[in-house]
């Protein structure tokens, strides 16, 4: 295998909040690299600092200590070549589906006509062509989240960050969305950082899974997912898949006690 270029490099990254009870360390001493084109999930229970870590990578949270480098340049704030997807679809209720997808184009004052075709194509890819002129309130939760995925992809960013994008959806819709995302990745490969607390979701989608846990929170486990792409729809029923899920579950439950065992 040829060595892939590094997209993100984290070196001893920490985040400390000031609270009334004194400083609270939310993320402690994370050092790792994310390679170009890899889909990396960050897995952990709620409150483990995984969202904070993503926000620091996106430049939306200040970094208390350590350095994040993206393609050779230090990250100091938000930049337009990162696509963001939140837990809530965060669509603007007064804009049509199409205008919501084109919102980043408007903010960055790029020519709308040049991106119109791409917007149509993206909406067609997620099966929402017929809904381009609908308002978000006329769509279901899953459809809204698909719109927000299109919005994150409209400028074709090399890096996509997703903060528990499907955790507000029901189980059936969630499975559908996972397959839709696999499909999007197949057609549109890029580097992905995916925050989730679902083990199966992480294994299904990722090339690599990082488990966060403990207090203060660290990366306690770093596993490569050996499945190639495209992945068959029924991969989640295979024994290897379930074995991996079981292993990950152990790491999550044992928390940081296992930290020493899995040092890179």
């Amino acid at each position: 295998m040829t060595a892939k270029a590094k997209h993100l490099d984290l070196w001893q990254v920490s985040k400390t909040y000031q609270s009334a009870q004194g400083p609270v360390e939310a993320v402690s001493d994370v050092t790792l690299s994310i390679e170009e084109g890899d889909f990396v999930s960050i897995l952990g229970p709620s409150g483990c600092g995984k969202s904070t870590l993503m926000m620091m990578l996106a430049g939306l949270e200040s970094i208390t200590d350590g350095v994040v480098v993206e393609r050779g340049r230090q990250v100091t704030g938000p930049r337009e070549d990162v696509g963001l997807i939140f837990q809530d679809a965060t669509l603007l209720p007064w804009l049509s589906v199409l205008d919501n997808v084109l919102f980043p184009v408007k903010i960055l004052k790029k020519p709308r006509n040049e991106y119109l075709r791409r917007a149509h194509d993206l909406l067609a890819m997620v099966g929402l062509s017929k809904f381009e002129n609908h308002r978000p309130s006329q769509l279901s939760g899953g459809m809204r989240q698909r719109v927000s995925i299109c919005r994150a992809l409209i400028l074709d960013p090399p890096l996509l960050m997703m903060d528990e994008p499907f955790s507000a959806l029901d189980a059936i819709t969630r499975d559908e969305m996972n397959l839709a995302l696999l499909d999007i990745w197949q057609k549109n490969p890029k580097t992905g950082v995916f925050i989730t607390h679902s083990i199966r979701e992480a294994v299904l989608l990722s090339d690599r899974v990082l488990v966060m846990g403990g207090r203060p929170s660290k990366v306690v486990c770093d596993i490569k997912i050996p499945f190639g792409r495209p992945r068959p729809d029924d991969i989640a029923e295979s024994p290897e898949f379930n074995k991996l899920c079981g292993e990950l579950k152990q790491y999550i439950q044992s928390g940081h006690k296992r930290t020493e065992d899995v040092s890179t």
């Binding site: 938000p78 990162v82 965060t90 919102f103 903010i107 960055l108």
Partner: peptide, 13 residues
Amino acid sequence: PGDALRLCQGLTA
């Protein structure tokens, strides 16, 4: 909503 503001911030609005 806070996420809407973060979205704008992420787009360097």
